[in-house]
Amino acid sequence: MTTYAFAAVLFTLGIAGMALLPNLLRKLLAMNVMQVAVIVFFVSLAFKDGATVPILGQGGDPQAAEFMNPLPHTLMLTAIVVSVSTTGLALGLLVRIRSRFETLNERQLLDKLR
């Protein structure tokens, strides 16, 4: 329950940051915080009491109760790298915006766009 609540705190902080911060770079960082919240949530769903990491040791017949659920781990593994790439693409857009409008402040941008 604590990890779920922690994920909820991070998610709320991220969304609030995206909506309220004026600087586009900070909005992007807030979006990353939100993505981390989703990752924390998924990985905590994979947890099982008394189970170990989903890597088979020496031999034996693996039982489902002995290992944590590998599926959320897989999904989050790709999600992390995709989030790195989307952050890179967003940074590229920010560089473009910065070089064209000379600001990353949302309000100044809106003024310059009208």
């Binding site: 779920y4 905590s44 994979a46 099982k48 693996p62 489902a64 659920n69 590998p70 599926l71």
Partner: peptide, 23 residues
Amino acid sequence: PEFGDPGSPASTHVSPRFIEDAA
């Protein structure tokens, strides 16, 4: 479901197959 519950839906549907047969 409770945190760490081995009987939660996420742990009882596809993942047992992955855990028991993957290797």
